[in-house]
């Protein structure tokens, strides 16, 4: 039963390093926290301390800004992102398949799209503001514009570079054009499409902040501007922390969805 485990010095050292690697992330988090405490010390520190930030959190929960707690503002931003992303995915995946799979539409439409996506989304702000004002729609439109390139480019690449051998298998089994598209090309491009979904999600989360800074009454972008205008640095930092957390959460969610929907992309992990 209680046989001693036999290990060489080398193996013992490997094991030690493995343990060290597991601890290191926590160590770096601890360092960050220590750094935060350090820079926020003193009377005229220009950085809010952890305590002040926590207090600001409690305050906004008791006295909402424009009727919304921090979670309300996060939710407002998320709603914009979700609506824009769903539209971007529907349109972007269809467009990417169209241009990636059919050579004619590729030659016809891809130059237009390349021109469109070489303009950074924020450059649209003046035009969009003039056309649509400062309401909800222009914000969503801006997020849509910001998230569409990633999904189109990835889908396009996935459909354009379907491995020839898979299509040859289709030819051999006498698959027709529709079967080749739906049963071979699109499934084989799914991991590329998901890469697009991941990138477009993080792009959307970035652009929504910019869109909300333009004006309005809700969203984490609005909170940051509000904090800046009233020199409420704890509020700014609190918003930043939430933006980071939600961004990370979105990344994790898309990754999990991919694993769930495309289990074959999970490489060798029995």
């Amino acid at each position: 039963m209680n046989q001693p485990i036999v290990m060489s010095d080398m193996e013992r050292r490997e094991l030690l390093w493995k343990r060290i690697h597991r601890v290191l992330p926590f160590l770096s988090l601890g360092l960050l926290l220590a750094l935060w405490v350090y820079v926020s010390q003193g009377e005229n520190a220009r950085f809010p301390s952890p305590g002040a930030t926590w207090d600001r959190f409690l305050l906004i929960m008791r006295h909402p800004i424009k009727g919304l707690t921090i979670f309300g503002h996060v939710w407002a931003s998320l709603q914009r992102v979700c609506i824009a992303l769903i539209c971007a995915w529907l349109f972007g995946i269809a467009f990417g398949i169209l241009t990636g799979w059919y050579r004619k539409s590729d030659s016809l439409l891809t130059p237009l799209f390349t021109a469109f996506r070489s303009v950074p989304p924020l450059a649209w702000i003046p035009l969009i503001t003039i056309w649509f004002g400062l309401g909800e729609f222009p914000k969503i439109l801006l997020v849509f514009i910001g998230s569409i390139p990633a999904i189109v480019v990835n889908t396009h690449a996935g459909m354009r570079f379907v491995q020839k051998i898979y299509l040859d298998v289709g030819t051999m089994f006498n698959a027709n054009a529709r079967q080749k598209l739906f049963k071979i090309a699109i499934p084989s491009a799914l991991d590329a499409i998901f890469a697009g979904i991941r990138t477009s999600t993080s792009a959307a989360w970035m652009v929504v902040l910019a869109a909300e800074m333009l004006g309005g009454k809700s969203g984490v972008g609005f909170l940051i501007i509000r904090g800046m205008d009233s020199l409420d640095m704890p509020l700014v930092l609190l918003s930043m922390i939430f933006i980071g957390l939600v961004g990370a959460l979105l990344a994790i969610i898309t990754q999990l969805t991919e694993l769930l929907l495309c289990p074959w992309t999970r490489k060798q992990s029995n």
């Binding site: 051998i165 040859d168 298998v169 051999m172 006498n174």
Partner: peptide, 20 residues
């Protein structure tokens, strides 16, 4: 013509569909 004939081909390279 693979459309007309019932043929099957075992390719040299791995050609199983990874998504199935």
């Amino acid at each position: 013509d693979p459309k007309k004939h019932n043929l099957a081909f075992v390719f040299q390279e791995p050609s199983a569909f990874p998504w199935l």
